[in-house]
Write a protein that binds this DNA or RNA. Structure first.
Lengths: 253, 253
DNA sequence: GGTTATATATCGCTC
DNA sequence: GAGCGATGTATAACC
């Protein structure tokens, strides 16, 4: 798992080590040491000298972690060019990207530890409880939203943006359903309102159009706003979320 | 920098190593090996056996990285309880969290390498080009948006959220300004429309209220929607983004 | 604690 | 390539 390791290297040795393993793309490349990081692109940042962990993945993504939080201090999702060099006696890693145009530079100001780790084989990843799954369940069982509901379409494109579920109720009125996998806020209410407006405009004033926000919960301000706009809320739950249920059974159900 | 290292440990040794350094909170703790990860909480997931890098920070945050992308395969922002144990002959790290209630479990299915890294001292972090900075600049120099504009308030709360800039134009009309640090899409248009509606409702029908979306750029569909709703777009640029300008001068300007 | 808004969001999908 | 929306978003700010 530990393919190669370099302890307290001088700048030239570190640059050589980095370039060697950046070429190979054999696995994860990391350096833990005192560093200074600059970023130029969508914004501009400077992380002053401190202790950081640099992580470079085989896909060319770069991230620099400090001692706190899930989010890296600096990062680069995918790099077009990635190389190390000694500049003014300091080893510098430069990560460039074209779209958008941005540059991340890591200056290794003190020796630390550099390693190449054999992390390559990715396992299958299964996720349950997404909005897409909720949509599929409700499309097949629309009575969970309301009795007599008939689903006409899913992800219906209206102007710009897609309506999660487009349906008709027992009385023949059109129903726009906006789904949220978690507690819905005012943004969801507005999204629903926008779709309802769009459909009303397209259908003309003759046809009645209802708007339903379907989610496990809704914030109090959102509910107020929802009712004020003549829209409705329906509580829907994910089916497989109870923790006591065996994971495999739930994931493969 | 490399405080402690364990190569190809058996489950008991790995569990002991993890618990020792989880107590100490001395720096970053990491394990690179074949693992299987389960998550139960806001959703439910299973990362099947593969090669991963586990990273635990002194603040108790946990992340598991695969060979691709900036985003971890699994993570836990802050943990209330964190401990390792041998279960059925396998070392398992369990990371719990109360709000929201979720559990991350990492099963180390094959020996690898465990390390404690001395990453503790965080450097100062400076960021330029945020929306907050743009707001400050425009609040002081509203003529960059429009001649004759007078800013009345910033981050004005109007029930449905906060208005970035609340102003009055040369003709005495109220102006709602929504800022975006990057290219604005339809979501920004909706946000602006929401605020304009709220202010019009509060002020009554007597007073004219304008809505301006101020951003470096706007997507074509968003611009169409904007004009359709009687709202306006004004191009504003960040001042310090040119890359040729020295970083320090820009950051400390 | 609850809610809202930002982010160098990242990521994946569709047009 | 551009735009749009979901994300176990994370994270900070404000009520």
């Amino acid at each position: 798992m530990l393919l190669d390791q370099l302890l307290n290297p001088d700048p030239a040795a570190l640059a050589a080590f980095l370039n060697l393993h950046l070429q190979g793309r054999t696995g994860l490349l990391q350096v833990a040491c005192e560093a200074e990081i600059t970023y130029h692109g969508r914004a501009m940042s400077l992380a002053q000298a401190g202790e950081y962990l640099l992580l470079v993945k085989p896909d060319g993504s770069v991230q620099v972690h400090g001692p706190r939080g899930v989010k890296p201090v600096n990062w680069q999702p995918g790099t077009d060019s990635l190389h190390a060099a000694v500049e003014d006696g300091v080893c510098v890693l430069t990560a460039r990207r074209s779209r958008p145009d941005e540059v991340l530079r890591v200056l290794f100001v003190a020796p630390g530890v550099a390693q190449a780790l054999g992390v390559r084989a990715e396992g299958e990843f299964l996720l349950d409880g997404t909005e897409a799954q909720l949509q599929e369940v409700l499309a097949r069982a629309p009575h969970l939203i309301e009795e007599g509901l008939t689903v006409l379409d899913r992800e219906l494109l209206v102007g710009v943006g897609g309506i999660d579920l487009y349906a008709r109720d027992a009385a023949g009125r059109y129903v726009i359903v906006e789904l949220k996998r978690g507690r819905a806020g005012q943004e969801a209410v507005h999204q629903l309102g926008r779709y309802v407006d769009a459909v009303r405009t397209q259908l003309g004033g003759q046809v009645a159009v209802r708007g339903i926000l379907a989610a496990p919960a809704v914030t109090a301000p959102a509910r107020t706003r929802l009712h004020g706009a003549g829209l409705e809320f329906v509580e829907v739950r994910h089916l497989h979320l109870p923790q006591d249920e065996p994971l495999q059974a739930a994931l493969f159900a």
